[in-house]
Every structure is written in C-alpha cells, then in structure tokens.
Design a protein around this nucleic acid. Structure first.
Lengths: 331, 331
DNA sequence: GCCGCTCGATAATTCGTATTAGCACCTTGA
DNA sequence: TCAAGGTGCTAATACGAATTATCGAGCGGC
C-alpha cells in the first residue's frame, strides 16, 4: 500500500525512534495512515514468537481453579492475582488441561503446557514435592502462594506469616489469664499447619506453659470436645476454622457458654464450607494481598529484578472477635 | 540427542501416522524416550503460529473476571466453563490485560491479544455492540454467554430462556389469583432484561390482563414500595433479586406480610450482593450449565462441526419458594 | 545391471513479526 | 574531487514449530 518494507511497518508500528532507527516523519505518517484506514493489528502470536515472551502468567492449582467444595477459600487469592495481572497488563492462563493422575492434577505430564506462560503461580494447600523439585531444578520461573520448604533449592513464595499471627493469638489468650491451651489440628504436614504449630509452641514456651496438641484426624467434634473438657483445657486454638464452628455449635448445644466456659481461637479462614455466624477471635489470612504479591514476585523473577525479594511472609490481620474471655476461676 | 531431525521430532510429537508420513517404530520410541526424559514440550506459541490453533480458549469479561462487587454472580459460569475446558483438555486464558477505556474493558485495542486463543467466551451483562459487530464481521470464533441480538450477523450464544421462565412465574401468580401484577426493573437495555419483560407481557396478554411496568432506575426501595401499594399491585415481579430483597425487607419493617399482603417473584439470581435469607419464588439461572455449554458451542464452532447449534437457550430452574400466596380478598 | 517400488527420514519452506547490519544516497568540508 | 559522516530505508535472519516435496537406501524382478 505504501510501497514500504515490512521492516519499516514494524518499526513504525512500535514507534521505534532510537539512535539506530530513523524513519522520515513523512514516511512514518504515510504508514500510520495506512494502518489506521485498514485497521491492521499485528498478530499477537507472531509477535510473541519473536519476542520470546508472552505477558501470560500461568495459574496452576491442584484443586479446581474455581472451587466449589472448598467454600471459595481460593477465590480471594485469585482476585488478588487478577488485580495485579490486570495492572501489569498480563493475561492469566488457567492450566485447566492438566490431567488428573492419582487423585490430583499433575504439572508435569506428556503434554505439559506450562510453557504457554512466561511464569506460573502455584496455588494449593500442599504442593507435590517432586514436582516442586523439578520446577526448581529446571529453573522454571514460578511462585508458590504459601510458604514452602526448600525443594532442591529455595522455593520462591508469598506466604502468610502464620507463626507470628498464631503466637500473637496465643499471647492474647495468655494475657487473658488462660494457662491450659490446646492446639486442635494436624500441626504438621503442609507448611501452613506446621507454621501455626510453631507459633503456638513458641508463645507457650516463652510464657513457660506446656503446649498441648489434640490431633483432629478421624475424630468427631464430639470426641474432640470431650477430650478438651477432660483435659481441663480453657482455650482451644483451632487450626481449621470449620472445626472451630463444629465444636462451638456442639458446645452450645450442650449448654456450655462460649467463651465463658471455653474460649475458641481460630487460626485463619475456613478452607471448608462453614457458617461464619460466629465471630471468632483469631486472625484472617491476607489472601488477596498474597495473590497480588505473588504476581509481583513472579514478574520480578521474570525480569530478573534484583530488588525483588522472592520469599515473602505477609502479616495476617488480627480479629478481635467474641470467642475469647478470661477463664472461669474455679472457686 | 537422538540424531534425528526437527521434522521427525515434530512428526513423533504429534503422533502422525498418515499415508505419507512413516516413522520406524524404533525411531519413534527413541524420540519419545528423549522427550520423556527431557520433559520437552513444544512451544505453544510457535505451534499456534504454524498450526493456527493451540487449545487455548479465551475468556473475556467486561467486569473483572473474579468478581467482588457483583456478589459472585459470574462465579458459577466460570465453574461450568472450567469444568468443560478441563474435560476437553483445553486451557483457559483470562484476558485480564485488556485495558479499561471509558469505564469498561475493551476487546479491541492496539495490542489486541484475543488471537492468542483459538476462540473466546464472552461474559457480561451487556456487550459492547460495536465490538460485537467487529467480532462477527472479522469472523473471530466466539460465543456469548447470554443471548445477544444480531450484530452485523447472527451472534453465537448460550443464553438463559428468560421469556419462558418469566412467563411460567407469571402464570403461577395468575393461577394463584393475582390480577394486578407489576414488573419491577428496567425491562429494556440488555437482552436479558428485555427477554424477561417479553415473557412477562406474553403471559399477561395471554390471560387478558394488563401488564404494568415500574422502572427501578434512580428510585429508592421506599419509593418503589410506595408506588406498588399506591397502584394496588398484589404481585411484584422483580427483575433483580437484590431489589426484591430490599423491598421485602422494607415491607416487613413497615409491618406488611410477605407474601400475605404482597407477593414477590424474583426473576433469577442476585447480580448484586444481597442476602439470600428470603426464599423467593421465581427461578434460578442455569449458570454452570450455561458456562459448560458455551465451551461446547465454541469448540463446535472451532471444529466447524455442522452438528453444533450455535445459538442455544437453556431452561431456567423453577423455584417454588415462599413469597407467593393468593392475594388478600378485600371484603 | 537396471528399473521400479517401498520405506524412512530430512531439507526446505511457511506462519507473521522483531531486529540488526548494512546499502545507497546526500551533505559537508578540506 | 574525494573521504567522512549522516540519513532513510531495506534485506536478511531469528523465533519454534508444522508441513511437504524429495532424497537415499534397500530390495525384488527381469
């Protein structure tokens, strides 16, 4: 149309005006005019092929991306991720095509589509250790949402600062006069559980009190409540919000006063569907913020920005709530 | 690694075994082994450039994809979309990079990334008509979630059958003895509103009753309730669930009995955050199903499958609810 | 020994853009 | 008049795969 070469069109299209590149204003205008009248748009695919990157960020979850059974626990993470991606002008690729093998999705398989994206955000309670190791050793750019132990090298992550938040909650209970506290939950396994347990122990050790642990696996709320009462526990520190709800409801049905007879402290948001009617004392996981920051870290990694700290702990937001009261003094 | 050419790798990778293409089983196995051990994956971008498709489906919404203000109205659509994409082995590209111009995201702009995907699912209350026209005329493969009027040609869509569902609700009210019914809402503008209104009018015409319309724009719940009562309306047919909640709550505060004094019928799910305590009579939008089917239609379009019906209306699920009762007989 | 045929694999080209070295032309100054 | 330097643009190539025409080897038949 303009009798000009493809290279020139490319240069004009990208508004190049460096030292080496020079286009006569008259030519530039002619090309721009042709572009405008034809509505020409550079093919993004070819563009990406040449540029060697996509501005696409992958999102991989071991659970379905849009959760139904997990009571939307992951939703706020995604909101943060999307917000940040939008601000950065990146698109989000949900890696839904990953096939399920052995009950979980797998990142690595014969038709691995990870490289569709420039980098990848990993979401999920616990990540497969082998896959994590492979990601690290293969030098795939990725960030985990949630702290992860090293796996063949340091893992970039944006996690919630569970130790600090849990310790703070425990200290509040101690300050209120409690001496018999118990941790309800796994306290091990996924990093997020182990971290809570560490905070719990640290705060009690610091106060010279004995930390007690009540594992929840395969035990009904009734069994747990019985165990709590039998042990003379006055403040239950609950790993999983939904467990707290179950115990609180059961206790009230039995005529117990919460928090009069038993204080209950919730370490985070429900990861299973649960009523949120009870205003638990505890903390909130800064999920949106974590999602946002995970994208920041990922893009920092991609740009090899030396300023970017690839391992971050975000503080949790304390919740005053109404389930902590001084223990009853036994006369 | 295998001493084999790029072409051979490509052929093995794609499992080609046509008449013209022949690979010795031994070679094929050697290449496959190398692929497996290195975890090699074809660059999807290059693949798309050459093959013109890449099993990526775009998802474009005029609102943020992970909604916060819309009370998760879009969430179920996404669940359905994800489920179907997963089953088909497709990945989902959330087109979050689309910049906002004039208060809305725009599909078409200087760095249009739509073509990164094979096709695109469009989500949103109302789609920009110009952009829709351009999609149709440029022959971009896409599907709208929600019925759309023609825009320079027929628009592929998967919509909810609002006319039928609304007419059914109205007939129930008529059967219960109501004669003074009013439609609360816009009743125009987006197709989904116009469709409800059509169903409303059709059912009333059929019964020889006068359809009344109470526009909601810029009117407070109090004004609306006053207007309803002044007009002697006994059954309010509410376009937007959240409006129904506001009016019902206000009415009860004023000592009115719902549905004794006023029946309220909700035409769908809340698109704004709203309490769902009230068990409204009305219907539910088959959002998950719509999401699922939209992906089906899109892939049908991509494969030029002649079986695929590119315009579908999905029936809504009736809800009995507790907000419809016979009108009070004025003695 | 030559032709024809099948089998296996590859060289070469394509997709549409970004990038860079370098060419042709012009001006300037000695 | 010619080297030096500047200007405006283009040819060529890369990006990483898919595709196709073609090539060489091996083999049987005459």
């Amino acid at each position: 149309m303009t009798g000009v070469s493809q290279a020139t069109v490319s240069l004009v299209l990208n508004g190049r005006d460096d030292g080496n590149v020079r286009i006569a204003p008259e030519t530039r205008e002619r090309v721009l005019h042709a572009i405008r009248t034809t509505g020409y748009v550079a093919d993004p695919v070819a563009r990406r092929l040449a540029a060697r990157h996509n501005r696409i960020l992958g999102v991989f979850t071991y659970e379905p991306v849009f959760p139904t059974g997990t009571g939307d626990f992951y939703h706020p993470f995604l909101v943060g991720i999307e917000e940040c991606a939008e601000r950065l002008g990146c698109d989000l690729l949900l890696l839904t095509s990953a096939p399920v093998a052995g009950g979980r999705r797998r990142i690595f398989h014969d038709d691995n589509r990870l490289r569709l994206a420039d980098g990848c955000v990993l979401l999920g309670r616990s990540l497969d250790r082998d896959e994590l190791t492979r990601l690290v050793t293969e030098d795939q750019p990725f960030v985990s949402v949630g702290r992860r132990d090293d796996a063949g090298g340091p893992v970039p992550y944006v996690g919630a600062d569970y130790p600090t938040a849990t310790a703070a909650v425990v200290r509040r209970a101690l300050a209120a006069g409690h001496t018999a506290l118990a941790y309800l939950g796994q306290g091990a396994g996924p990093e997020s559980h182990a971290d809570r347990m560490r905070g719990f122990r640290a705060a009690l050790d610091e106060a010279g009190r004995t930390p007690r642990h009540l594992p929840t696996t395969d035990r009904s709320p009734a069994e747990l409540l019985d165990a709590l009462l039998a042990a003379g526990v006055t403040a239950a520190v609950v790993e999983e919000y939904a467990d707290g709800v179950a115990i609180a409801q059961l206790a009230r049905e039995r005529g117990l006063d919460i928090p009069g007879d038993l204080s209950i402290l919730a370490l985070g948001d429900p990861t299973r569907p649960a009523s949120t009617d009870i205003d638990f004392t505890g903390f909130r996981i800064p999920r949106r913020e974590m999602g946002w920051q995970s994208v920041e870290v990922l893009t920092g990694l991609l740009e090899a920005d030396p300023e970017t700290v690839p391992q971050r702990l975000v503080p949790c937001q304390p919740v005053d709530g109404a389930t902590l009261a001084p223990p009853k003094v036994i006369p």
